[in-house]
Write a protein that binds this DNA or RNA. Structure first.
Lengths: 75, 75
DNA sequence: CAAAAATGTCAAGTATACTTGACAAACAAT
DNA sequence: ATTGTTTGTCAAGTATACTTGACATTTTTG
């Protein structure tokens, strides 16, 4: 069912850094369940959570999230 | 009471473009009441709404929103 | 000043972001 | 094969994003 409107690359970048979901959750300051849900597109984070994820992973929001209507067709 | 955690420059950039709240709302695809609330920091938009605002205004998310804990001290 | 346009606010409702706790399934070690 | 770690999922609750409609206030313009 995932979210059709916004794609993200959180998992890819998290794995590139060798972090677990639990580690990312702790650094971002939200629960691991929320990380799972966001990675898999079960719901869309707020701008605050997005900025914290972006900061934790060290990449820009634009590298992390995109509107599917107009960007890459993957995920 | 506004949101203390995230600052934004939506109003400034909207005005620079000479747009009304109603015009921005229409282009973004949300209600004018929500634009008011987001501009004034009454609540935080989702990443989807943020990306649409960013696209509508033609500026990056990072130019539009920032975590107050670590960026500029102005509202 | 008066009229019009833009902005702010309130209320009440709906949708969804996010939480904790618990457990199941997949994967990786020995 | 068993143990440990990581990931996925469910349920039930709380917080908050966003809506419409209506109206008050402020700003702009003639």
């Amino acid at each position: 069912m995932s979210h059709e409107r916004v794609g993200n690359r959180i998992r890819e970048i998290r794995r590139r850094l060798g972090w677990t979901q639990a580690q990312l959750a702790e650094r971002v300051g939200i629960s691991r369940v929320s990380i799972v849900a966001i990675e898999r597109g079960h719901f869309l984070p707020t701008i605050e959570t997005s900025l914290r994820i972006s900061r934790a992973l060290g990449v820009s929001i634009e590298e992390l999230f995109w509107l599917k209507e107009e960007k890459k067709e993957d995920d």
